[in-house]
């Protein structure tokens, strides 16, 4: 056979335009371009991760340093409040034997740790707000999506469009009245206020995405369950929910990423108690100048949870995008 010299295995299903040197060449070229893009686009991420482990002089070194001695200085500055040691006291302070690991590192930089910073609290706020609002919007979303998918709700088309249109509103437009409303209702700077707001902003998306998934589940399953004596609610819980788990996971990831990263509302509707991490990372300023390694450390600590969740649910994520966009 003349074509058997090419590396691709020839089967009956192989198309004539997918064998031969020219195809092999363009394929290699495609892969090269994609790999190159991925590499370039990861440079900033790489730079951020390394900056988190750089010492203060290393992070602003001229020319930029790719190789350096790692240190956890950045993480310590992120998590603590510090004061500068007066030059006279420096030697004496360094000689003290009761210093712990972190205090010793900062003493080398001429700083004394005075207490924990707010970062831990802010990160905890982020965890509370993001998880509660995500769970709430997925829960409400799955209920509404089920009802829209299975019943002939009066005015269904209009209601669904209404739900979608709320997503088109720029957040800044509704922020001013919500700010006023929250001050009246005493929801300003509370966890509950942010949770409800994020829930609402994710809800429209959740309903649309989940409806697509539930539409896919054959009605026959539930009908069989109803015939067998299940009530509607039982059929929903025991038959539909397990089948919709892919969609629920996909929706969960999207809502979580939004709520976790949200900045504008958090900036305008919280101040101290309920402030989440995104508006506070830019304010991690140290003694004199921007502490880049502390900011990088804060960013890293903030990025890791969402990467873990996304990675764990990555297959659902891809399916989620496909369904959400293809199903109309």
């Amino acid at each position: 056979m003349a074509v058997s010299t090419t590396s691709a295995p020839i089967t009956y299903a192989t198309r004539v335009d997918k064998v031969g040197a020219r195809y092999q060449f363009t394929r290699a070229l495609r892969i090269a371009v994609v790999v190159l893009y991925a590499t370039i686009s990861l440079i900033p991420v790489f730079w951020m991760v390394t900056a988190a482990f750089k010492s203060r002089p290393d992070v602003v070194a001229i020319p930029p340093k790719v190789f350096f001695t790692p240190t956890i200085e950045g993480f310590i500055s992120l998590l603590t409040k510090r004061v500068l040691l007066p030059p006279g006291m420096m030697e004496e302070y360094k000689q003290r034997t009761d210093l712990n690991f972190a205090e010793r590192i900062m003493a080398e930089r001429g700083q004394r740790i005075t207490g924990p910073s707010q970062y831990g609290q802010r990160l905890l706020n982020s965890v509370i707000v993001a998880s509660a609002s995500t769970v709430l919007s997925v829960l409400l979303g799955v209920l509404a999506a089920y009802a829209f998918s299975r019943f002939n709700v009066p005015g269904k088309g209009d209601l669904l469009f209404f739900i979608l249109s709320t997503r088109m509103l720029p957040p800044v437009v509704v922020t001013i009245p919500i700010f006023l409303m929250y001050q009246q209702l005493r929801l300003y700077d509370t966890h509950l206020g942010l949770i409800l707001l994020y829930t609402v902003f994710n809800l429209s998306f959740a309903v649309w995405l989940l409806k697509g998934f539930i539409d896919e589940i054959p009605r026959e399953y539930e009908e069989a369950a109803l015939v067998d004596g299940y009530s509607r609610l039982q059929a929903f819980r025991k038959v539909v929910l397990p089948q919709a788990i892919t969609g629920i996971a996909a929706t969960f990831v999207f809502c979580l990423i939004f709520a976790w990263n949200e900045y504008a509302f958090a900036l305008m509707l919280t101040s101290e108690r309920a402030r989440t991490a995104p508006p506070s990372i830019p304010t991690v300023l140290g003694t004199g100048g921007i502490e880049w390694s502390a900011i990088a450390a804060g960013t890293l600590g903030f990025l890791v949870p969402v990467i873990i969740v996304t990675f764990a649910l990555r297959d659902y994520l891809l399916r989620g995008v496909t369904f959400g966009a293809l199903r109309k």
Binding site: S41, P44, V60, Y263
Partner: peptide, 29 residues
């Protein structure tokens, strides 16, 4: 490769902005 390319989407825009400030710096970026 697809997953790696998607990483920037997962990051918080304000933090990304802040970080690119360091990357753009004319002296040490």
């Amino acid at each position: 490769i697809t997953t790696l390319i998607l990483i920037p989407i997962m990051m918080s825009p304000v933090v990304i902005g802040l970080f690119w400030k360091l990357i753009y710096n004319p002296a040490f970026g």
